[in-house]
Design a protein around this nucleic acid. Structure first.
Lengths: 236, 236
DNA sequence: GCATTGCAAGTTGTTGACATTCGGAACCTT
DNA sequence: AAGGTTCCGAATGTCAACAACTTGCAATGC
């Protein structure tokens, strides 16, 4: 946020709560937990060498991000997305992102555009590595920079509260994205950057709608429509 | 949610965290705290007769709701809205609520419409009492029922994360709303209900845009703008 | 056998004590 | 007296123990 006088990034002091939240988030994205798995507070606390206090506070945060659910005296579980959930993510995200890109078209600075561009070049590099995980991360990162370019704190918060869900829903089905990512991601995102740079609100809205429709059309079908159906045999 | 077999409303068990969060929220809305005031954890804990643990967890929740800010080792403060904040609330809320009412127009049930109607009648009663506080509460409550009619969990969460801010920004300037509330609230909200009931998406969108524009046009001017904002702002 | 009841183990919820950090008052230096 | 430094009080951050709750299992009764 504020760099020191010497341009040195002064160590941002933050509590264990945030560290733990990031740790758990990272673990979830890395696939260290199964979908629906129970998160044991003492396990996490011991593994991160912290007490349970910060862990609990972190879980409250993650609940707000929608990637864990909590019930009274029943602890936290990783969410399990149904097709309905993904459809909700798609529709809400479209609404937010159309708004975001229209705002960005008006108030994006050169710096903002640069950052979007940097993500694009990072994508090109990642394409060679064929790492789906890295690519998805960059995908989300690009949209981060788009939202940031809108310069709208509360819009950013709204995005933050579904961001982790978006990331998780993509990661879970990452293997179905191979061809898509190889063929179209970079082009589509470059289009987004261009319409923003061109300051054309209408083109912006069209580009976002197409981009998200294309992404989610294939994604939704990968999730089960009823989560009542169950249940693979118990793994214990 | 699920009533017992005997129709007995089983007491919804919830932790102290939620109770405390609601307590603090209530206190803030009641004006028990000044804007920007520091929230002392031990004071709150003692006053509510709980330990600091639940209080801290509750504050994390309230931070997510945007009505308190927290900094490392500096605790929690009530937010202070600037004109920019209120403008952000207005624009984001418009985006969300347009989406909400269009969804509601499609998927609202009779029960949903009934609940909206109930709030309307409660408003009529409150109008006589001339209690601004009660009226604002009902105003927000009406919009609650609108969002609920959309049957979209993530949209509801997005609304929840600005709801408290909306409520607070209205309450802080409640004295400027006398005439408006007396004259137009009920009519405008009844319009909203009618267009939803008519299942007319376009009329819905128009009604919401007008309603919110009217509300925020007068509200924004009541908040003072920050220095930097006036310095670099370009009107549009 | 099947359902019910009581127990026990394990997990979460809560608490009070301890450690760390911030901000300001008092003090020294110039 | 102005400016900087040191120290202390007060609040927050963290921890480990205690209490409450849920759940699965086994014993009991039918």
């Amino acid at each position: 946020m504020r760099d020191g006088v010497l341009g040195i990034q002064q160590p941002r002091r933050r509590g264990l709560t945030d560290e733990v939240a990031e740790g758990i988030r990272h673990a979830i994205f890395d696939g260290s937990f199964e979908m629906g798995e129970h998160l044991n507070e003492v396990d996490i606390a011991e593994r991160l060498e912290v007490s349970r206090g910060p862990v609990r506070e972190a879980l409250v945060q993650l609940r707000q991000e929608g990637i864990v659910t909590m019930k009274w005296h029943r602890g936290a579980h990783i969410v399990q997305f149904s097709a309905k959930d993904v459809r909700e993510l798609a529709s809400l995200r479209t609404v937010l992102e159309v708004f975001a890109i229209r705002e960005a078209a008006v108030s994006a600075t050169e710096t903002d555009l640069d950052q979007m561009n940097q993500v694009l070049t990072a994508m090109s590099r990642a394409l060679a590595d064929e790492s789906d995980h890295a690519m998805i991360q960059l995908d989300v990162q690009f949209h981060d920079s788009l939202y940031r370019a809108a310069h709208h704190d509360r819009l950013w918060n709204a995005w933050s509260s579904i961001r982790s869900q978006v990331m998780l829903s993509l990661l879970v089905k990452r293997h179905t994205f191979n061809e898509y990512y190889r063929d179209r991601v970079i082009a589509e995102h470059r289009d987004l950057l261009q319409v923003v740079a061109a300051r054309d609100p209408e083109a912006c809205e069209r580009a976002v709608r197409e981009h998200l429709a294309a992404t989610y059309e294939r994604l939704v079908s990968r999730f089960r429509s009823t989560d009542e159906e169950t249940a693979e045999s118990t793994d214990r």
